[in-house]
Design a protein around this nucleic acid. Structure first.
Lengths: 159, 159
DNA sequence: TCCATGAGTTCTGTTTCGGAACGTAAGCCC
DNA sequence: GGGCTTACGTTCCGAAACAGAACTCATGGA
């Protein structure tokens, strides 16, 4: 199977990866969440090759994750901002960062922390059940596969 | 910059992507969380080309995300299981799925739900602050950059 | 006039991908 | 024993994607 076809699968993970699963895309979004908005800044801070960055930005705009807005006529200049759809990727960015903090940080510890504005603490947000409020880990949930949606219907998450 | 060098950045997101950011890798992990353990099953369920699957599995073992265990001598056969480090990727998988459920599902709705074993409801877990328990969204946190760890010290998450 | 900035595009060689076929080691069945 | 099947990869090779450098275009300033 070709990578460009994964969005056709009936799987929310595959479909999400068809939008943000390419090289450099998530680094671009990391910068977008750090208020970076312009081509040159994205280029310098991610290190992505310019032709690839141009292509990724275009694709993210087409997918509705970023919007391209003019901030100057003569010469025409544009900036890229997160849409509501893009802002909704915040949990993906945070969980990627959290895992890296936990497993990939050097001796100096994580380079970036998140201060929770409400309580003031620097925290690593984690997953909780919206119904009962309990913390949710890999052994706390069972996948429920809709009829006919998946080839195999496996049980709970494995160890 | 070459993609193979992103793990060298002092950024937890970049370092995480150096482990799970390649094509097919997250689909392999999706299957691992669905209790898939064998080469043929990974191949059929992800659709990844065989040489690429072999390479990805090897890399994930080298990175400590999966472990390769013999389940048969004569002929030697191995299966791949999530380690503790791999199980810790659960929030990444869940948030990818949640975003796809929200923004990429067809008219039939999401193909897979998660039943919370404790309370019995089918839920979409979301991020909460471990200190105060409040739900955490993109406007609720401020990145704190360690001295010298990043080129620019930007303010809070953008809109 | 010459240089600089911002946002890309073009060009070209390198790397990676992806599909088909092959290899290997065993078990099964007649 | 001969042939078929399963499981787990590896090899081969053409196609696609990437990555770095240079180039374009519009404008503004010294």
């Amino acid at each position: 199977m070709r990578w460009s076809e994964i969005g056709g699968q009936e799987c929310s993970i595959a479909r999400t990866l068809s939008v943000i699963g390419d090289r450099w895309t998530l680094l671009v979004l990391r910068e977008a969440f750090m208020r970076i908005r312009r081509f040159e800044d994205f280029q310098q801070r991610t290190g992505a090759p310019r032709p690839i960055l141009a292509e990724r930005l275009k694709a993210l705009v087409d997918d509705g994750v970023l919007e391209r807005e003019s901030y100057c006529d003569h010469p025409s200049r544009y900036e890229y901002r997160l849409t509501a759809k893009g802002l909704d990727l915040y949990p993906v960015i945070v969980t990627l960062m959290t895992w890296g903090d936990q497993w990939m940080a050097g001796s100096e510890g994580p380079p970036v922390g998140l201060r929770h504005n409400q309580c003031g603490h620097v925290v690593r947000p984690s997953l909780a059940c919206p119904d009962c409020g309990e913390w949710v880990g890999p052994h706390d949930t069972t996948p429920i596969v809709r009829e006919g949606a998946w080839a195999l219907d496996q049980g709970a998450v494995s160890s």
